[in-house]
């Protein structure tokens, strides 16, 4: 092979590799985008059935219920217009508490309960997840939402 043809082959194989990588990336990208919905959007039926998504809002006082000694807990999130009931079985994050903004990952079941496999509360007691802050701010009936704070830690849980 002449050096020229060799180089041509090299570049075309590199190009092929990049194309394959880009293709796989596109597929992975499409399957792994997770949309955020607030409780009003969930109530309005905007969420595709059976699809994983994120829901977030304020956990209202008195909504956290657990059979004593059980790992399974139920609670609600609200944007002060609508609420979504959430069920979760596992260890809750440190900053999960009533009156705190949280985000849950999971799916709706047939009875309209959101079954979460992951619950996130950012690692700062003053922090409000941005999506939650924005959706609370939009609602004029709710209490004034605290502004989203810049994270004062360099690393946290992905929202």
């Amino acid at each position: 092979m002449t050096p020229r043809r060799r180089r041509l082959m090299l570049f075309s194989s590199v190009l092929l590799g990049v194309a394959v990588a880009a293709g796989i990336a596109t597929l992975a990208f499409r399957d792994n985008l997770q949309y955020f919905y607030n409780p009003s959007e969930v109530a309005a039926g905007k969420v595709p059935v059976g699809k994983r998504f994120r829901v977030g809002g304020m956990v209202p006082k008195g909504s956290v219920q657990r059979a004593p000694g059980s790992l399974t807990v139920t609670f609600a999130v609200t944007d002060f217009a609508h609420t979504v009931n959430i069920s979760y079985s596992g260890v809750l994050p440190d900053l999960f508490r009533e009156g705190q903004g949280i985000i849950a990952h999971g799916k709706l079941d047939t009875s309209g309960v959101f079954v979460a496999d992951e619950v996130l509360a950012k690692h700062d007691e003053k922090y409000m997840p941005p999506e939650v802050a924005a959706s609370l701010k939009k609602n004029p009936n709710g209490p004034p939402a605290p502004a989203a704070m810049a994270p004062s830690i360099p690393k946290g849980v992905t929202l």
């Binding site: 394959v20 990588a21 796989i24 990336a25 992975a28 990208f29 792994n32 985008l33 949309y35 955020f36």
Partner: peptide, 27 residues
């Protein structure tokens, strides 16, 4: 990507770890 989507008010999304696992593993 989530920043662009947010900046242009196209919805709030997050890109899950499986995406990153895939695009890191393939190369």
């Amino acid at each position: 990507w989530p920043l662009f989507m947010d900046a242009f008010s196209l919805g709030k999304i997050s890109v899950g770890p499986p995406y990153f696992n895939a695009v890191f593993l393939v190369p």
